[in-house]
Structures are given as C-alpha cells and as structure tokens.
Design a protein around this nucleic acid. Structure first.
Length: 568
RNA sequence: GGCCCCUUCGUCUAGUCUGGUCUAGGACACUAGGUUUUCAUCCUAGUAACACGGGUUCAAAUCCCGUAGGGGUCACCA
C-alpha cells in the first residue's frame, strides 16, 4: 500500500475523444459517412471514445425521422459510438435515461432545455463580450485570431475580415443557441480532444476559436477534411438526384420532340400501369398513391427545380426509379444500401478518399484501418467520387463471398427490393439464380439488369445477335436451334437439370460434328434472352424450365422466319 | 466580390516537410493480346500526369514568388 514507484507517475494524458455531430435534417450522406468513419477510426486506434451528438438547434428543419435514419445508417455501416443516443432496437433515441455516457444529454435541443447554453451566454453578456441585438445575442469578434488545423496548418485571420455573429437566436428561432455556440460549448464540455469535420467548417473555425478563448475553454485540435465531389467537380448533394431526374425528363422530351408536359403525361400513364402491375403481382395496392393532378403538379415542380412540391423529393425519386427513367446517382448512405453495396466495401472505398496507408494497399478491412489510421496521412485536396471504382471493389468482394453467404445477401436484397424474382423462381430456383450471378454482379442489384429475362419473356431480339448466331451462313444457327429443340422436348422432367442439359449439348455437338458448345449455346441464348449473353447455358435452361424454354424457342424461330421472309 | 484553402496519369493517389535513388510507383478506367460455350472473371502487355511562368540551386514534382484554374465561406442553417 505504501510502496511508491521508483519513478514519478506518468502524468495522466487525456484520452482521445472524437465526435460525430450531424444535424438531423436529412439522410446521412456520403461525406458525413466518411467524417464519421475517420472520427471512429481515430478514436478506436487510440483506445479513445467516439461521441454521437445530434445538433438539432434548428427547430424548423430537424426531424426525429432524420435522427433515426442517421442512426440506422451508422449501424448499417457498423460504426459504433461510446456516448450518445441509445441505438438498441425498441428504444427511443430521444429518451434521456437511455442515453449512453456521462456528458449528456446528447441532443442539443435537450441541452438547451437543461439551460447549459443560456448560463454561458449570460456570462458573455455580463462581461461585455456579447450583446443583445434585436432579440438575438451577438458575440464580438474584434481581435485578430489564429489557429492551427491538423490538416491545413496554421491559419490567421485579421479582425477586419471578421464580423460579430449571432450566438443565440431570437424568438423566431426559439432562443436556441446557434450552431457556432452550441458546437463550441459541447465540444468543450464533452471533453472532445479532436474535432474531425468537413472542410466547409474551416472558415467558421475562427469563430469557434474565439469563443473557446472567451469562455476559458481549452481549444480542441481541429481536423478539417477535404470535400467529396461529383465526377464533374461539383459538390455531391442530394439535389443531384432531382437533377438526374430532370435531365432524364428533358432528354425524353428532346428524343421524342415533344413538350415537357406531354412527357409528364406519359410518365403518369407509365405510373398508372406500374401501379396496376404492382397490384396484379402482389394482390394489394401500391402503398404510394397519387391523383393525376398531384402527380402532374409535383412532377412539374420537380422537373423545373422547385423544392416545394406536394410530393417529397424521395418519393419522386422512387417514382422516377420505378419508371426506370433514371437510375439516380447514389448520394446518401441509404442509396448505396438500396443499390446493393456492401457496407465494408463502401467504408473501404471512402476511407481512400483523402486518406491512404502510405503504401500501395487499397483493399483493407476496418481492423487494418484502425491499426494504420493516422491524421498526418489525410490529404488537403478535394476528391471526386468514382462510382466505377467503388463498383469494381464491390464486385470483387461479392465474388469472394462464400456461396451461401452471397445467396443469403442476395435473397434479403431481393426480398426487400424485387420480391417478384423470388416469387417466380421459387426458393430452389433463386439459389441457382444466385449462383449464376455471383461472379457477374457488381452490386446485389446487378442481377436485375443482367437477368431480367428470367422473369420477363417480353423482350426484343438484338439484331446483331440474331444475325451472328441464327441467320448467318444460311440460317445455320436457326437449324441447330430447331434440331436441338427436338432433343430438349424429349428430355424428361427428371433430367431437366443444369448438368444433364450441359451434357446433352455436349453430345449433340459431338453427334453433329459442330465446332464447339457455342454453336448450340449461342443460338439458344438468343432465343431465351434476346441477346447473346447469359450465365452458363446449363443453369440458364434449368432455371427457365422446359415449358418456357420450348415456348421461347418457338417464338424466336417464328420471329426470325418472319423477318427472313421479309415484311408483307 | 472580400477572406481562407487547394492544384502529380481521365479518376483516387504514392512521392513534397527531410531537393539528387522519379527516364514519377500503385489502383480504377481505357486499349491490345491470351484463357473461356456468350458475358463476367482471370492472365499478360500498353497508352497516360508533376497546371503555367519566373526564380534559388551543381541539381526541383519536391524550396520561394507570381499567374491561371478549382473549392469553401461570408444566415437568428448546420
């Protein structure tokens, strides 16, 4: 007990504390996800703490739905926090008693209710560093100020370039603190050591530094991250989705040489038939219902870039996607989820935007990131988001998955997004479908583009594919198709499996002295898919089923014959 | 516009602090060839960058100055 160490005790160092502080005014977008990732990685690397704090000081724009969405997206990504709202299922994140950590509450609206900000504002008022202005409170910015940023270095601003700024809103804003005041106070009170956030806050940091000084708080280390941009160099934003839909509408108008209103009219018809199809397929009404008037006015607003439409951006986005007039650009974390990216891959890819481990390693998991993460390796340059590279990473990760894991993921994805495939293929069929597309999928959604013909026989024949595989050389392929149809018809139901059918083709090739399997497989592909592309021919035949295969061959032969004989 | 920040292949980047080993490396994309029943995968090879102009130096992608271009910010939004 009284034994003292020989050496003086090491002075206690402050544990690393980072925070992610979104404002709940929309979904978590990709830039926010990277900020969260870096804050998470830095805290984990140093055995520190990550705080999730919700900055809901904007009464008009903050919503509980956004808070829940952000929490859900962070959980999907696998980024966990040590202090903040409780994300356990069934628990209301706003519930004070359930929040984790000693520095709560973790919602700024709740902190305001607790009087945390008003007390400090009064201090500034009393000392003359702040003053009342038309119901609001402003902070005096009358001195030169300098600060150090971990990424951008030393920055100095002259007093002349600074202005007094509001720290507490007036009655209209509920007398809540502004972002600048709340963020400064909370970071200090929550003992945050490293403020990791987007570069858009760099220009605000002089305010935060001055506030820290006036309040007598130690300044945290500021770490500003460069922005993530679109391929064209513009900033990534959810408005891009509307932009894409708008562009699509205008493109359709131009292609058909018709006014935009008539395009919207056609979209309405398309929407009606999509709704009807939904009902036929699922036996219940489409949960999204509009009157023609609503639809037209909302879409018009959408197309001419107005936010105040009767239908929300998200719903219009859904419509545009349903009608397949656009494949909206992925912007928010939930988009990447919806389009079948793996969270581990998304995280890997966005970690590479502005950071790298210093060698040529590009594919890594979060254990690697935590081990190697270092603030000094964060770059200063904005980076463009390259969906093609992400897709490649994702495709490789999917291909590397054990079969059964891929099957489960694909099944979940399709159950949520394209249940008609599961209905039509059945559980056994879906297994074959998954196996057929694992190596061919860049996302869990890819099989819908590649394998639509499995559930939809209403396709046109690609002229090039018909010529090359059927009509060329006096209809060589067409003859093979006719003859092979006979063998298929003779095939018993028990023999209708991928392996047996594959062998059937092999022996047919041998018997007729054909060049190779392609001589049979390619004509079949055209008949079955309309194109020259499908997964392996065996599983393709098996999955389609005997009846469908024979019908499609007949339909194809007929169509090509008609075409060869010419019109009339 | 004021202020702040940034600038290496088409894109993400290594290299810049501590000038020479950089005739600038990797990845994605692209092109060509090979494997494959198609597609995808895979293998091999290739095209491709230090924004521009001055300086400092024996030597500059690396240091300094200027120009151009880009981004951010300038709300009782965050």
């Amino acid at each position: 007990m009284n034994a003292q160490p020989d050496t003086p005790p090491v002075p206690p160092t402050r544990p690393i504390v980072t925070r992610f502080a979104p404002s709940p005014t929309g979904n978590l977008h990709i830039g926010g996800a990277r900020t969260a990732l870096f804050a998470w990685a830095f805290a984990r690397k140093h055995g520190g703490q990550l705080i999730l704090r919700i900055e809901d000081t904007d009464l008009a724009r903050s919503t509980p739905e956004s808070t829940r969405g952000i929490i859900r997206d962070l959980q999907w990504l696998g980024l966990d926090w040590d202090q903040g709202p409780n994300a356990a299922p069934g628990i209301d994140p706003y519930d004070l008693a359930s929040q984790k950590g000693d520095h709560g509450p973790y919602f700024q609206s709740q902190r305001h209710d607790a009087g945390i900000y008003d007390k400090l504002i009064q201090k500034l008022l009393d000392s003359g560093q702040a003053y009342e202005d038309d119901g609001a409170v402003r902070f005096r910015m009358d001195k030169d100020i300098a600060f150090d940023d971990v990424v951008f270095g030393h920055i100095e601003i002259k007093a002349d370039d600074l202005e007094d700024f509001v720290i507490r809103k007036g009655d209209k804003g509920g007398r809540l603190p502004t972002f600048h005041f709340a963020v400064t106070v909370d970071d200090a009170l929550m003992e945050v050591t490293h403020v990791i956030r987007g570069q858009e806050h760099l220009a605000h940091t002089p305010k935060h530094a001055a506030l820290c000084d006036a309040l007598g708080f130690a300044r945290p280390k500021w770490v500003h991250l460069p922005s993530i941009m679109n391929a064209d160099g513009s900033k990534m934003s959810k408005r891009d989705k509307a932009k894409a839909a708008r562009k699509a509408a205008h493109t359709i108008a131009a292609d058909h040489n018709e006014p935009i209103q008539s395009v919207i009219g056609r979209l309405w018809s398309a929407w009606c038939s999509a709704t009807k199809k939904y009902k036929d397929q699922f036996g219940k009404d489409n949960p999204i219902q509009y009157t023609e008037k609503e639809f037209r006015s909302a879409y018009t607003a959408f197309v001419i870039d107005k936010e105040d439409s009767a239908i929300s951006l998200e719903e219009l986005d859904t419509i545009a996607t349903t009608l397949t007039i656009i494949k909206p650009p992925e912007i928010q974390v939930s988009d990447f989820w919806k389009y079948g990216y793996l969270p581990s891959v998304l995280l890997n890819y966005i970690a590479l935007l502005g950071w790298n481990p210093g060698d040529d390693t590009e594919r890594f998991d979060m254990d690697f990131l935590v081990e190697h993460f270092d603030l000094s390796r964060i770059g200063k340059k904005n980076s463009q988001f390259d969906r093609v590279k992400l897709a490649k990473f994702n495709g490789e990760a999917l291909a590397d998955l054990p079969d059964n894991e891929f099957h489960c993921l694909l099944h979940d994805h399709f159950a949520n997004n394209h249940p008609e495939y599961i209905h039509m293929l059945g559980d056994e069929g879906f297994k074959i479908f998954a196996a057929a597309y694992q190596a061919r999928s860049q996302t869990l959604d890819s099989p819908t583009e590649l394998g639509r013909f499995f559930v939809d026989g209403d396709f046109d024949y690609t002229p090039k594919a018909v010529k090359k595989n059927l009509t060329k050389n006096d209809g060589e392929g067409l003859n093979v198709l006719r003859q092979f149809r006979i063998e298929l018809e003779a095939c018993g139901d028990d023999d209708w499996t991928g392996d047996t059918l594959h062998k059937l083709i092999e022996s047919f090739v041998e018997k007729h002295q054909l060049k190779n399997m392609g001589s049979v497989a390619q004509p079949l592909r055209v008949a079955l898919t309309g194109s020259a592309v499908s997964p392996e021919i065996g599983p393709t035949l098996e999955l389609l089923g005997k009846e469908t295969v024979l019908n499609r061959i007949d339909r194809c032969v007929e169509a090509v014959d008609r075409q060869v004989q010419g019109p009339g």
